[in-house]
């Protein structure tokens, strides 16, 4: 299995049509993850996250490259990449805002918080600001229900976020 995988990895890098080249460090990290599981497919989600961490999103060319490293089918990677909400298949802004739209936040001011953010940034859910600074997305219950309405910016969770605190908070993310 290891021989096949490394052979495929080489060929994927060499033949990739989009000019996407998997970074050496990322390839090593993916191979390291693969060893945590019984089968290489299991490292697929982590591989997508590794690529996304470097590029901000998962470019098309990364799909066959990951498939090559893991020695699995391209469709197996693409199917997974399009299923999970935190894998981005198009470019996102420098910062990703995830606003919790589940029940507890809904009951404690989600509508007002969403309105404040969309007004401040001039974008709706699923969109990125023209300057490439923010992408705005809804997210499943963030598990911050005791302090709703809650949101995440990159790795930071905030709550409760009053609508009038939004502008000040966003200033922190250049």
């Amino acid at each position: 299995m290891n021989d096949t995988a490394s052979f495929n990895a080489q060929s994927a890098i060499a033949t990739d049509g989009d000019g996407f080249v998997l970074h050496e460090e990322d390839r090593d990290a993916i191979l390291h993850e693969r060893d945590h599981y019984e089968q290489p497919q299991a490292a697929c989600i982590e591989a997508l996250k590794i690529v996304q961490k470097r590029h901000g999103w998962v470019p098309d060319g990364a799909i066959p490259a990951i498939a090559g490293v893991l020695g699995i089918g391209v469709a197996n990677v693409e199917g997974v990449a399009t299923f999970y909400s935190l894998i981005f298949r198009q470019p996102v802004g420098r910062h990703v805002i995830l606003v919790c739209d589940s029940s507890s936040c809904f009951l404690t001011g989600f509508d007002e918080l969403r309105d404040a953010i969309t007004a401040e940034l001039g974008i709706d859910f699923g969109q990125t600001t023209a300057d490439g600074r923010f992408t705005l997305l809804p997210v499943c219950c963030l598990g911050a229900c005791d302090r709703g309405p809650a949101l995440m910016i990159d790795d930071d969770t905030y709550g409760p976020v009053p609508p009038d605190a939004v502008a000040e908070l966003l200033k922190e993310y250049a």
Partner: peptide, 27 residues
Amino acid sequence: IALHTGAGRYICGEETALISSLEGLRA
């Protein structure tokens, strides 16, 4: 023990979907 972090989707919390996701498949 290894830590396996998810990539979103509520359905991953369902016992058998979680196993699918752990195996690197659609959940």
